[in-house]
Design a binder for these strands. Structure first.
Length: 308
DNA sequence: AGGCAGGTGGCCA
DNA sequence: TGGCCACCTGCC
């Protein structure tokens, strides 16, 4: 009996909105099995979620995962009514935004651990989501502490000595742990040139105890300035970290998808990323990051459909 | 087979 | 400021 009973989160979502919320490129440590059960790991938490027959989102916590109900509450922002937030976006005067909102009703912005979010987005430069997930998974498997080892129930010795990584749940390495790992070793996690950024950022953070926590607690502009001090963190990564790891909904990350969306849907052809950032925050307002999430989800969906 | 993928940093005018 | 290019690696 590894899991608690299924309990209600109080949320009602469609399968596609759930997928877009957990696995749409904001977080990289959720996996869905063939029965539609999602398993997510963050901090020392291991949680399963699934939709029941009525479309209600339920969760179960792992037996080795303590205080995880509270952690999930925070992670999913269950105190926040995102449909109320979305309603304040300027969809009444923006038909394309209205279409995006209608396509993903109930979409939410997860609130992930700040340091983990930074690590994940340092991996993200010119990589696709599947590859980012692979890098993050390797970082956890190779360098993160074991949260739970199912082999302790059935030791490898009883299974022909075969050790199955799928039976482990690993946390991500902390920044202090990362600082102690040679860059060449990190490269074995398929990080490529990103290993240098992660290694250098780890040195920077490890040399400044409390720096990361302070950064998370600062208002958006000051927090962004601080993140930009880190090697490998530019405007886009900083905005992602603040949006998905610090709940700063005014952050408006501009990546290639948003660039495409703004060109194709808003006629902003040949606009530079800094210009799009300015336009986005101006046009969408204080919750621009939430609008970004809808635009991003919609653009990716359209792209998948045109391929199929 | 060559170009491209959730970018960033450094160097040039 | 604005434009180019290297940086790893895997995948179509």
């Amino acid at each position: 009996m590894q899991w608690s009973k299924w309990q209600s989160t109080g949320l009602h979502l469609s399968p596609s909105v759930l997928r877009e919320t957990l696995d749409g490129g904001q977080s990289f440590r959720w996996r869905c099995d063939k029965d539609g059960i999602w398993i997510g790991i963050w901090g020392n938490h291991i949680v399963r979620v699934k939709l029941n027959g009525e479309g209600a989102l339920t969760y179960a916590t792992h037996i080795k995962s303590t205080n995880s109900a509270t952690a999930l509450h925070r992670y999913l922002g269950l105190d926040t009514d995102f449909s109320v937030l979305a309603d304040t976006l300027p969809w009444r005067s923006d038909p394309h935004l209205a279409k995006c909102l209608a396509a993903f009703p109930g979409l939410r912005i997860p609130r992930q651990p700040f340091g983990e979010t930074l690590l994940c987005f340092l991996c993200s430069a010119t990589k696709q989501i599947v590859q980012i997930k692979e890098m993050v998974s390797l970082l956890a498997a190779n360098h993160g502490e074991i949260i739970y080892n199912a082999e302790s129930l059935t030791p490898p010795a009883n299974r022909g000595g075969i050790s199955d990584p799928a039976l482990h749940f690993h946390a991500l390495p902390t920044w202090e742990q990362l600082a102690a790992i040679p860059e060449e070793t990190l490269r074995k996690c398929l990080l490529g040139f990103r290993a240098r950024y992660i290694s250098a950022s780890a040195q920077y953070i490890a040399a400044r105890p409390g720096w990361l926590d302070e950064t998370e607690s600062l208002p958006y502009p000051a927090a962004k300035d601080r993140l930009l001090e880190l090697p490998g963190v530019g405007a886009k990564v900083a905005d992602c970290v603040l949006l998905f790891g610090a709940g700063k909904l005014e952050a408006f990350p501009v990546d290639t998808w948003i660039l495409k969306a703004m060109a194709n849907r808003y006629g902003l052809n040949d606009w530079k990323p800094v210009q799009i950032v300015h336009f986005g925050r101006q046009h969408f307002g204080p919750l621009a990051g939430l609008a970004q999430q809808y635009l991003f989800a919609y653009e990716r969906q359209q792209s998948r459909q045109s391929v199929a």
